[in-house]
Nucleic acid binder design. Structure first.
Lengths: 257, 257
DNA sequence: CGTTTCGTTGAAGAGTGTCAAGGCCAGTGG
DNA sequence: CCACTGGCCTTGACACTCTTCAACGAAACG
């Protein structure tokens, strides 16, 4: 059950020059420490749109840091229903689910051509033993994923369709902005069905709500192209018509660091 | 914002004699290694029913291993809606959400009188540096939590009320069994509203579905006391009327050690 | 023993899902 | 270059699940 496509580009990986360094590695790291990281992350891997980085059931031995591209994680229920649990973009780490049982429990599928840094887990484990900042950083990465999922659970458990989509759009917006892209105009890499799966809605509902937002002047939609016209209007939807105000756990907040 | 009740019982903690050891600590650990763990886990803490072990906003510095009792984790949305994200029982670890930002992002509330072992995170971090089994074990604990939440997301995103409750009951059943209690008869420590919050349903729906299950002879309910009469019938509900069969990711599977 | 919290049940209504038809767009092959 | 195809998106009508509101009963608590 190993994945078919393994085009390993063996060009020397450079963490020092990587523009995603602050996102990927702990803040205060000496040059020597970064070099030790580079000794571990020796390969990259490209995944073509539609292909899997890994699949549920695959043996786990590596984590992946996304250099560029876009992925979804999906779990499958016993009777074949698919559930999108996350959308991942550059600078994020995927594969954490595999540590539990040394086997991946979900699929990671590229939604556009994607390139990842391959991080052999055993070697990372070695590294954490002698580099406390790295150990602490890795714990934070996992903890952040747990907190992110809390937000998803909150969304799925207690929000209406409009609130879910508003939260979803704002979340995307902030993540794009944090990566230097426009926060008000972006392209959805996923289909309506995938958005629906992620948000616990049917694709028709997603479509209808987006149309309604568009009609209300909150956004402008053209197929996959989205423009946010009234961000605080979207925020007001989540907080329940009340004015924006500070969010305690809005799922819209960017994963910091 | 520190929690009010901090009755620290300073009786010497003994991991060696703890009947939850296999659940809490890695399998192959030498006596010396266990002693080093005991040096770190020096205190226990009791939390009375209804009180908080910690609250969102509290500074994070410790993890907690549940010795006995029952807890819920809840997150709060911006507009005050509460969402239960987990129910925890003996042998499980809580507080992992706090690592991300050195601040807890959810409340942990005792649903019955509870006792936990206090694990200072900084010291645990020290320990993992020199004990590879412990580092690996701790990573697995966090990864398992991520996988568990995948199951919750799947449930919330794609299941109907009856399926959710069937999965919930089977999940509880297996966890009780794994702890040496009856898998077919147990007491719910939480209210209908809390079950509903966890499952993304209203308490009336929970009550109705339980009544329906009872009427169909699947279970017997008497307030908080539940008896499972037909487990495979419940399983059939989840898999969609089809016969039980092997589950791929059913959320009903016990979180192994 | 009163008071409060919790649980059950009914009736009506809202919010999504389901089914179906049609339009848009990109890619493919003639 | 154009027609064709298939995937994706939109929209409408209707069905259904779940929520809401309300009343009542049962257990828990001081």
């Amino acid at each position: 059950m190993t994945t078919p496509n393994i085009p390993l580009s063996t060009l020397r990986v450079s963490c020092i020059n990587c523009n995603l360094r602050e996102r990927c590695l702990p803040a205060r790291m000496s040059l020597r420490e970064i070099e030790r990281m580079e000794d571990i992350v020796t390969t990259r891997r490209r995944v073509k749109r539609g292909d899997a980085l890994y699949r549920a059931g695959d043996r786990f031995d590596c984590l992946y840091a996304i250099r560029l591209g876009f992925l979804k994680s999906t779990v499958m229920s016993s009777d074949g229903r698919e559930q999108v649990t996350a959308f991942h973009m550059a600078g994020e780490m995927v594969g954490l689910d595999g540590i539990a049982n040394e086997v991946h429990s979900c699929d990671a599928i590229a939604l556009e051509d994607t390139e990842v840094c391959v991080i052999p887990y055993e070697k990372l484990l070695d590294l954490t033993a002698t580099m406390r900042v790295m150990a602490a950083h890795f714990h934070r990465v996992m903890s952040r994923e747990i907190v992110r999922q809390h937000g998803v659970i909150l969304l799925l458990g207690s929000m209406h369709a409009e609130e879910r989509l508003a939260a979803f759009l704002l979340n995307l917006s902030q993540r794009f902005e944090a990566r230097g892209y426009s926060r008000s105009e972006f392209v959805l890499r996923m289909t309506r069905a995938e958005i629906g799966s992620y948000l616990g809605l049917k694709l028709e509902t997603v479509s209808r709500v987006l149309s309604r937002f568009s009609h209300d002047g909150l956004i402008q939609v053209n197929q996959k192209h989205v423009q946010i016209l009234n961000a605080s209007g979207l925020r007001a939807i989540i907080t329940g018509q009340g004015q924006s105000g500070p969010l305690r756990n809005g799922f819209t907040e960017e994963d910091r660091s």
